[in-house]
Design a protein around this nucleic acid. Sequence first.
DNA 1: GCGACAG
DNA 2: ATCTTGTCGC
Length: 226
Amino acid sequence: MYRPYHPPADPQLVRELTQTQQELRTHVRLLPLTHEPRFIAGCDSSFPTPETILSVFVVLRFPSLELVEKVYHTGPVEVPYVPGFLSFREAPNVLRAYDKLQQKPDIIMVDGHGIAHPRRMGIAAHIGVMLDMPSFGVAKQKLTGNFTEPAATKGSISPLTDKSGELLGEVIRSKDKVLPLFVSPGHRCDQATATRLTLACLRGYKLPEPTRLADHWAEEFKKELR
DNA sequence: GCGACAG
DNA sequence: ATCTTGTCGC
């Protein structure tokens, strides 16, 4: 398959972001949820133009999954995309979108990785720490770690581990014969909770409702801008 | 030195 | 992420 080429990143920038990332990491806490969520949020970002980012937050009632609110926020893109540092490019705008929510959620499902990251600080963990809110990530592509292909049937799961065997996340088949999802906890959440909620949010599509709707509305809001 | 690389 | 048509499989 075709492999993307990532242009060299500014060494100085990478050093600074790495330090910030490691500081944020000290705040991460992996714990089971204390109470069953009543509201779960989904968030995702898109780029109407190369220099503009549009972030969306949707809040669904849980476990009914009815959409109760959707908001978005747009702003200028100030940081380039560098593998492993996606959060610094998207999180600032995502947090502003979060501020616009009337109904704050009990937990946030982010489009991206949680601790299944080189330094255990994917965007889901980053956002969770910034808001000090429970969060977890659901990604469509692997960033780091190893795994064996889960069975082709919906609900099949296989672990995502690092070289030392540490569990980074779980690879979940959310729909029969469709590429699996990579689910990992972000902040104030554990793997069992992340996996359980992801499965509870499936409604016949590859993506669980929170991120699927956030994805959908990101596209709608984008059109709405022109 | 050779791959891998979220969105 | 984004740019894009037709096409294969259930």
